[in-house]
């Protein structure tokens, strides 16, 4: 049964499933608790996920396995430890002509 009187940014919700849809501009996220999944509405996506806005829904989706935060699935903005970031990609080794900066964990141009 769908109830209208919801909290937490839901537009519609149900006792069992949590949010079914979100108020405008919020991101719909499926949060799992044990075997159950409930819908929650957030103003931005949790860490490890990126948001995509669409006319009817704003969704969060996972970044790649080697990426901590990302702009889209194919464009990382911060890699997991052990990887260097270069142009949106997470690399174990920096490509030729670039050097690994272990402070920022990025591949940067070699300064002569």
């Amino acid at each position: 049964n769908v109830s209208q009187g919801c909290q937490g940014g839901c537009a519609t919700c149900s006792d069992y499933n949590g949010c079914l849809s979100c108020k405008p501009r919020l991101f719909f996220v499926l949060e799992r608790i044990g075997m159950k999944q409930i819908g929650v509405c957030l103003s931005s996506c949790p860490s490890g996920y990126y948001g995509t806005r669409y006319p009817d829904i704003n969704k969060c989706a996972k970044c790649k396995a080697d990426c901590d935060t990302c702009f889209t699935r194919n464009f990382c903005t911060k890699c997991k430890s052990g990887f260097y970031l270069y142009s949106g990609k997470c690399l174990e080794k920096c490509p030729g002509g670039l050097e690994a900066n272990n402070h920022t964990m990025e591949c940067t141009s070699i300064v002569h």
């Binding site: 996220v29 799992r32 996920y49 969060c60 996972k62």
Partner: peptide, 11 residues
């Protein structure tokens, strides 16, 4: 296979 995290977002 998603027992490790509690956000299983991609249906």
């Amino acid at each position: 296979g998603h027992a490790d995290n509690h956000y299983d977002l991609d249906a």
